[in-house]
Amino acid sequence: MAFSAFATGTAKEQAPRRKSKIALLLLLPGILYLMLFFLVPLVSLVITSFQQPVPYGDIGEFQNAFKWENYVDVVNTYGEHIFRSFAYAILATIFALLFSYPLAYFIGVKARRWPLLQNLMLVLVIAPFFISFLLRTLAWKAILSDESFVVTGLKALSLMAPDAHFTGTPAAVIFGLTYNFIPFMTLPLYSTLERLDTRLLEAGSDLYAKPAMTFFKVTVPLSMSGIVSGVLLTFIPAAGDYINASRDFLGGTGTQMIGNVIESNFLVTLNYPAAAALSIILMAVILVMVTVYVKRSGTEDLL
């Protein structure tokens, strides 16, 4: 159903009768590109993840082997970070959805009467993209710092303990993740809600459904494809994000996510097999979670 927009309304079955040589030729650059920049690095990553240190070797020297214990080691050492990454990503996705749905509904449905307002609000949603992701996160770090008006204000109102901090806490990291991925959630939601047929909502109330019931029985199912793409676009990058949780941005030593662990292993301790094994675990877990999620929400057509 997601692609119905692209198909012409009265189209008959137009399946090509034979394999077109031109179609294959057109696909070739894409296939070569994926081979070179996806398959090769992936294979290289898998090989690296099984490497073992060169006996008596220097820092960062590894040789090919089949050391599957690497996977056990990283799970034992960094299990907490793996769990934390997905917990943060799930929370950030839920918050982003709760925040974005009303926003997208307002822009896509309520604001239809005022196209100017609609466009203006869309621009406001996209506007943050004009500024670098890093700069925006740094700006939040300054806004949420100890001597900022936000923190001093909350403390003056006794909403925060006098010696409490905001930056460097899990709350700050989840806040950063939510904030940074809101546009990725809002835009797909908007694009489905914008096509929502409001006559169906009228029909719902004609049939004595309460507004809440109409919402859950009509609006939500009709916007499911937007929810699914929004959740995927938010969850997948959020789980691997290493900027918000970085100690240089909103995080602290207690909030490090799997991306930070990979970065540290790759760049500082030069433990390439550990970094590679963690990357593969991250990919595998995301793949499993996304597959289960898509199956359960009944939108296989999207994949």
Partner: peptide, 8 residues
């Protein structure tokens, strides 16, 4: 791709 064996 580099990153394989080196040692010695």
């Amino acid at each position: 791709t580099p990153g394989g064996t080196t040692g010695g």
